[in-house]
Amino acid sequence: RRPMNAFMVWAKDERKRLAQQNPDLHNAELSKMLGKSWKALTLAEKRPFVEEAERLRVQHMQDHPNYK
């Protein structure tokens, strides 16, 4: 499986939080909310998630050198 990108790293915990706050929302609505929230973040706010995604990408390359 591919490593998570920055959005997916961020959305993993954010989706849980949103789902707890909005138990009646379907996954499609949660995804739309997550997309809008991600776009609203500044580059500085996204940076930790971008860095974690890069760390995961490098780790994935080391763990699976033949993955394409």
Rank of each mutant, 00 (worst) to 15 (best):
Glu14Gln: 00
Ala19Cys: 05
Pro3Glu: 15
Gln20Lys: 04
His60Tyr: 15
Thr42Ile: 01
Lys46Arg: 11
His60Met: 11
Pro65Gln: 14
His60Ala: 14
Ala19Tyr: 10
Arg17Asp: 02
Ala28Cys: 04
Lys32Cys: 04
Pro3Asp: 14
Pro3Ala: 10
His64Ile: 14
Asn66Pro: 09
Leu34Thr: 03
His60Pro: 07
Thr42Leu: 03
Asn27His: 05
Leu34Gln: 01
Gln20Phe: 06
Ser31Trp: 14
Val58His: 13
Ala40Asp: 08
Phe7His: 04
Leu41Asn: 00
Met61Arg: 13
Leu56Gly: 07
His60Cys: 12
Ala6Ser: 07
His60Lys: 09
Ala6Lys: 01
Pro3Cys: 04
Pro48Gly: 05
Leu56Tyr: 03
Arg57Pro: 03
Asn22Gly: 04
Lys16Cys: 07
Met8Gln: 14
Pro23Ala: 07
Met8Ile: 05
Asn5Thr: 13
Leu41Pro: 01
Arg17Ile: 04
Gln20Cys: 04
Pro3Asn: 15
Glu14Lys: 06
Arg57Cys: 07
Ser37Ala: 15
Ala40Thr: 11
Leu56Asn: 06
Ala28His: 12
Arg17Glu: 02
Leu41Thr: 04
Met33Pro: 02
Pro23Val: 05
Pro65Phe: 11
Leu43Thr: 12
Leu18Lys: 02
Glu45Cys: 05
Ala53Thr: 03
Lys36Leu: 09
His60Asp: 12
Thr42Gln: 01
Val50His: 12
Arg47Phe: 02
Pro48Arg: 05
Leu41Cys: 04
Ser37His: 10
Leu56Arg: 08
Leu30Thr: 02
Lys68His: 00
Leu56Trp: 06
Asn22Lys: 12
Glu54Trp: 04
Glu54Cys: 08
Glu29Leu: 00
Ala40Asn: 13
Gln21Leu: 11
Leu34Ser: 02
Ala53Gln: 05
His60Ser: 13
Leu18Phe: 02
Asp13Phe: 04
Lys36Gln: 14
Met4Tyr: 04
Leu34Lys: 00
Arg57Ser: 09
Pro48Val: 06
Arg57Tyr: 07
Val9Leu: 14
Leu43Phe: 15
Asp63Gly: 10
Ala19Leu: 15
Trp10Phe: 07
Leu34Ala: 01
Met8His: 14
Arg2Lys: 04
Trp10Tyr: 09
Asn22Thr: 05
Met61Lys: 14
Ser37Val: 09
Leu25Phe: 02
Phe49Ile: 00
Met8Cys: 12
Pro3Trp: 02
Glu52Asp: 04
Arg1Gln: 08
Lys39Asp: 08
Asp24Trp: 10
Arg2Ile: 11
Asn22Gln: 06
Gly35Trp: 11
His26Glu: 13
Asn5Arg: 02
Glu14His: 06
Leu30Tyr: 10
Asn5Lys: 04
Pro48Asn: 00
Arg55Asp: 04
Asn22Ala: 04
Lys12Trp: 00
Trp10His: 04
Lys16Phe: 06
Leu34His: 00
Ala53Asn: 04
Gln62Ser: 13
Ala44Lys: 15
Arg57Asp: 03
Lys36Pro: 03
Val9Arg: 02
Ala6Tyr: 02
Lys12Asn: 10
Glu29Gln: 09
Asn5Asp: 15
Ala28Gly: 11
Pro23Thr: 08
Phe7Val: 01
His26Thr: 15
Ala6Gln: 03
His26Asp: 07
Val50Leu: 12
Glu14Met: 05
Glu51Ala: 05
Asn27Phe: 08
Leu30Ala: 00
